[in-house]
């Protein structure tokens, strides 16, 4: 029987840290543009759309990597509620990474607006124009972004808890450091 891996696969680690940066940037960009009427609003929205599509593409790659590589197991002495919380929060993170860009793309489509990633790059509409649907999708995009932000905060706190308090190798399994 093969020994369990201590670390996530190098590609999985690369995707994790790259997407961590992109998603945190994305959450701040989204919160900033929604709360601004200045020129910031415009240039942030021009960052938000292509970055969102990049996250959507990367999360699909990431899920493929997740299912095709072996994950280091959680420590055997981790309390059961923490095991459940870890698993649930990871699947919630994956789901939100996938759903938020799709909601953004769909809401622009539902508003009847061309889905422009730049001055000339256009994506097809994901749904046909429908104003009441736009309102639902736009609100879901905003609320779920907050859910993602709080889940990311929880994930960050839990990672530091493993690294600083439990010192059980869980944080290292993603940083790739040997302690």
């Amino acid at each position: 029987m093969n020994a369990q891996p201590r670390f996530f696969a190098p590609l999985a680690r690369l995707l994790h840290w790259l997407m961590a940066l992109m998603i945190i940037a994305m959450l701040f960009i989204g919160a900033g543009l929604a709360a601004s009427v200045s020129e910031r609003h415009e240039w942030l929205i021009h960052l938000h759309k292509p970055l969102g599509i990049a996250i959507l593409a990367l999360v699909i790659v990431r899920l493929a990597v997740r299912f095709s590589t072996r994950q280091p197991p959680l420590p055997g002495d981790l309390p059961r509620w923490q095991v459940l919380a870890a698993k649930a929060s990871h699947w919630l993170l994956y789901a939100l990474m996938l759903v938020l860009p799709l909601l953004g793309w769909a809401m622009i489509s539902a508003a009847g607006d061309p889905v422009m990633l730049s001055h000339s790059v256009q994506l097809p509409a994901l749904v046909s124009a429908n104003a009441p649907l736009f309102a639902v999708l736009r609100k879901a995009h905003g609320y779920l972004a907050y859910v993602l932000f709080f889940t990311v905060l929880l994930h960050l706190a839990a990672a530091l808890f493993h690294g600083l308090i439990r010192r059980d190798g869980v944080l290292q399994s993603m940083t790739g450091t040997q302690d």
Binding site: F28, A34, A35, V37, H41, L153, L156, A157, F161, I165
Partner: peptide, 29 residues
């Protein structure tokens, strides 16, 4: 524990700054 709390508070605080929570005078849409 204080370090962990500090990191989480700093990120949450930065987010609240960006979304205008700390700045009720900001002109928003």
């Amino acid at each position: 524990l204080a370090c962990i709390g500090g990191v989480v508070a700093a990120v949450a605080g930065a987010f609240a700054y960006v979304n205008g929570t700390f700045d009720p005078q900001r002109l928003q849409p």
